[in-house]
Design a protein around this nucleic acid. Structure first.
Lengths: 148, 148
DNA sequence: TGCAAAAGTTAGCATAGGCTAATAAATGCG
DNA sequence: CGCATTTATTAGCCTATGCTAACTTTTGCA
């Protein structure tokens, strides 16, 4: 029970495994930030401005929640808000939005190219885009361009 | 500024978009549960038992955090714990672990087959596995088996 | 112009997942 | 055997993300 089974199939060493889970926790923290700046960028691009009420409707949460999250994003210098005014992205926020949009796009095209139905691809891309490294993204991009 | 730009590239209708984000929030909630039951199953399979201290080391969090999370998982009938005893999976927990393991395996093989380096594939699979629908997983599996 | 509707803010509450510190139980070894 | 180490539990605190409810500011229209 206590003897070390050394090299086995599923378990890597605890330290590197912990590093991986730490990355995951970090990713979880930035997911919402990315979703917000991405949506804000889209709203500005297409509606002319981003308002909390639109974010609330599109995220499907209350406007109070949006407000609180925007406060966090402002603290982190990703958005710029002024009371009763519409929402703007900072330079950092715009950069994050652009990166998120690019990843989203590549993942979506990739899934579509390999044969995932459009609707499912759209849903899954939403989840996957936050967890794809640049290295994997490069592979996705090549396949999306060249096909299988 | 107020005129509706109707059908455009990036923004789908608010309602279905909200549904998508709702799915994401649900997924976020089950991610940690899946990670726990998956690791518990692995520890039981390979070390003979799962103890909170091992989970803490592998997740890279304090054992107090592990304890609190285990309490939640027990409430949700995924694990069975007794004070100062090792941790077991319920039937539901074992089923979740098996599903997570299967998805993890398929995603990992898929990434490797399409050309993602092993180390990166291992890292990314960790994040992606929680966000892949059965439909996409089926596509991944076919490619993993047949190659590109 | 004035008032109602829409939008934004704020307060207070809940849950989840982090932490440290203090305490308690189990284990194991000299 | 008894005490030290290891392991587990508990309490108290924090942040993030949800909520509802109450309140304020803006906006737009009759």
């Amino acid at each position: 029970m206590t003897d070390p089974k050394s090299t086995d199939a599923r378990l890597t060493d605890p330290t590197s495994q912990a590093a991986g889970f730490d990355r995951m926790r970090q990713a979880r923290q930035t997911e919402i930030a990315e979703d917000y700046v991405e949506l804000i960028a889209d709203l500005i691009a297409e509606e002319g401005e981003a308002r909390a009420v639109d974010l609330a409707a599109r995220f499907g949460v209350s406007h109070a929640t949006v407000n609180k999250t925007l406060a966090r994003l402002q603290r982190e210098d990703l958005v710029q808000t002024r009371p009763y005014r519409s929402i703007f992205l900072t330079e950092a926020g715009a950069a994050m939005a652009e990166g998120a949009r690019r990843r989203h796009q590549i993942v979506l095209e990739f899934l579509t190219v390999i044969g995932v139905p459009a609707e499912t691809a759209a849903i899954d891309a939403e989840g996957i885009e936050h967890h794809v490294s640049e290295e994997t993204l490069a592979v996705f991009e090549r396949i999306a361009r060249q096909g299988l």
